[in-house]
Simulated scan of single mutants.
Amino acid sequence: MKPVVSAFNAWTCIVISVFAIVILSAIGSMFAHGHHTMMGSDEDPKDGGKVAAAVFGAVGVYGVFLLFCGLQALLHKRQSRQGEIALR
Rank of each mutant, 00 (worst) to 15 (best):
A7C: 11
I27M: 13
G28H: 08
S17Q: 07
A86K: 15
H36S: 04
C69W: 10
V22S: 11
I14L: 14
L74M: 10
I27R: 11
Q79T: 13
D42P: 04
F31K: 01
D42M: 03
V64Q: 01
M38G: 00
G49R: 07
H35M: 02
E84K: 15
A73C: 12
L66E: 09
E43F: 09
A32L: 14
F19K: 07
A58Q: 09
K46V: 02
V22M: 15
M30C: 07
S6C: 08
R88H: 10
D47E: 11
A32P: 06
M30P: 00
G49M: 05
E43R: 13
L67F: 15
Q82S: 15
K46M: 01
I23C: 11
V4T: 13
I27S: 09
C69A: 10
G60W: 12
R78E: 08
V51D: 01
G34F: 01
V64H: 02
Q82H: 14
W11F: 05
P3S: 08
F31A: 01
V18N: 00
A7K: 12
L74E: 09
L67R: 06
A52S: 05
Q72D: 06
L75H: 06
R78L: 10
A73N: 08
K46A: 03
F68P: 03
G63W: 04
G63I: 02
G83A: 05
P3Q: 07
V18L: 14
H36W: 03
A7R: 14
A58K: 14
A54K: 11
I27A: 13
E43P: 00
G83W: 10
C69R: 04
V4I: 14
V51N: 00
V5Q: 03
F31I: 01
F31H: 11
G60F: 12
D47K: 08
F19G: 06
T12F: 13
A73Q: 05
G40C: 05
I14C: 00
A10K: 03
D44Q: 09
Q82F: 06
L74D: 04
V4R: 15
V5K: 08
S29Y: 09
H33V: 02
A32K: 13
C13E: 09
V18I: 15
S41M: 07
P45L: 12
L66S: 06
R81W: 08
